[in-house]
Design a protein around this nucleic acid. Structure first.
Lengths: 143, 143
DNA sequence: TGTGCGTGCCGAGAAACACCGGCAGCCACC
DNA sequence: GGTGGCTGCCGGTGTTTCTCGGCACGCACA
């Protein structure tokens, strides 16, 4: 279960150090893909396969579905962390998420998300105010 | 079942001593997260997992849901009390709840809440008057 | 064959974590 | 009312872990 916020940096070779507490769960391989809101999603291998299968089952006679599948799968990169728990982020993914040097990695239960530090800060600022009321509006009955 | 009010202090390393009577219930691990009204919630691990699963099941294609999930999960920190029943409160959480040195920890049945002492006092002052009548308005038929 | 880039390894510094001992307050028993 | 013991609180100190920077190797392309 991925949780919390971490602040790793991209080194000059485009490698990102994964938070230490997440490494065990990702040691078996992981997938980096383009997420919503211009961040990157990181899934454990098994988790991604399960999701990908669902997506692949959608009828690819539909033009929009086909485009989505292509975009998703073409933009996905398989990685295996090195001995120090780092992965390298492909240039196209770096561009998509606007990653400079300072990054933010957040846990989202089944996946990680990688954000550029500034983008994340902006996102937080925009949503903090609505957080309290969202608890009752978006998710009635959870608390 | 968490109940009552306690007044621990943050030490200079940002650690908070949990009330002694709550420690057994939290020894197996706990989650600290951003609550409503700028306080922090503390859930036992199992309790949180159950809740998180419900939240994670909500469709993350919806923009508002996604924002809520991110804010919740990124702002959640897993902790395990040390031998003296202390946890450390992450700087971002401290900021969110405006925690100075003097804190207030209140029991709320399934969870604890951590408040800054002054914020809590202010909250009490604002709500004491409406408490008596709220009993009949909010909870008809309970008493 | 030489050069450049990508990848992996190793070490030092720093920060976080956990443990341990002493002190104060409270309660019970004498 | 006084004294002893217990429990919880607080600060310091040691150890481990993580992170960061540098270095060497290997492959690919020129």
């Amino acid at each position: 279960m991925f949780l919390g916020t971490h602040n790793p940096k991209l080194d000059d070779k485009g490698r990102l150090t994964l938070p230490a507490k997440f490494r065990d769960a990702l040691a078996g391989g992981l997938m980096v893909t383009k997420g919503q809101d211009h961040c990157l999603y990181v899934f454990p291998r098994a988790e991604f396969e399960q999701m990908a299968r669902k997506v692949a089952e959608a009828p690819f006679t539909n033009e929009a579905v086909r485009a989505y599948q292509r975009y998703l799968f073409a933009g996905t990169d398989e990685q295996r962390p090195d001995g120090q728990g780092r992965i390298s982020v492909a240039p196209e993914l770096r561009r998509y998420a606007g990653l400079a040097k300072e990054c933010v990695v957040i846990g989202a239960i089944t996946r990680l998300e990688i954000w550029d530090s500034q983008s994340w800060q902006r996102y937080l600022d925009e949503h903090e105010d609505s957080y309290a009321q969202a608890q009752e509006e978006v998710l009635p009955g959870v608390f």
